[in-house]
Design a protein around this nucleic acid. Structure first.
Lengths: 112, 112
DNA sequence: TTAGAATATTCGAATGTTCGAATACTCTTG
DNA sequence: CAAGAGTATTCGAACATTCGAATATTCTAA
């Protein structure tokens, strides 16, 4: 139960967006679009250490953006909500369009 | 200029999502959906101090999620990309649906 | 049950974010 | 120009996030 009177939905949404705040987590999500993957596979594909991948997966498990399937020694992760991927892709599309526009006129602040 | 070889798009997207990481900024964005507003108006509507609103607006200006229109003493802010709002609303919809489902079975981690 | 592979957790240092307080800037009116 | 309204910036303390290192847990096979 939230202790302040702030609208819960914005807090929820901000918590959710924190999941999308890390480039490597976004990369993992994008990899999972193509199908479920084990932790070790993800570690190789992203060039991260296994422990770090597990940390990122834990974050995304807690916000329930991904789900797990245990089989033998492995844990296979996949996306919980295809719609969330849509939203992410929508954002990427906007950013790409914007980037293309911006390159013409201004030096943007993206690369700082 | 990024100094590492990490795909720029994920970094851009993560920078962008940082903008959506703060509940008050999300509230401001939602208010701006209904039309442009001055800083003072936003301060009143959100119960934030003027300086703090300006700080949030600066963050959103830098990621270009909002744009400004100066008129006399005032600066009126509005959304730069309606599509971004769509993405935000999509996320809110998913979260709401998820919340409704979750309430039935589990005590979620949203309210910690 | 023990070894070993796969995955998860804990801790801490470095880094980043947030908000209030103080102050600066900018524009208008007189 | 001076005063005042509206807006922006800077600084710092409190708090949150990140990643590596070390270690723990879980499962399989022998």
């Amino acid at each position: 139960m939230p202790s302040d009177s702030e609208p819960t939905i914005y807090k929820m949404q901000s918590e959710f967006c924190k999941t999308l705040t890390n480039p490597k987590r976004l990369e993992i999500l994008h990899l999972l679009e193509k199908g479920e993957k084990s932790v070790t596979e993800l570690a190789k594909l992203t060039n991260l250490r296994q422990a770090n991948v597990s940390q990122h997966l834990a974050v995304m498990r807690h916000t329930r953006i991904i789900k797990e399937r245990r089989f033998g020694n492995n844990v296979y992760y996949s996306l919980a909500h295809p719609k969330i991927t849509q939203a992410c892709n929508m954002i990427r599309t906007i950013l790409t369009e914007q980037l293309i526009k911006d390159v013409k006129s201004t030096t943007s602040s993206w690369n700082e």
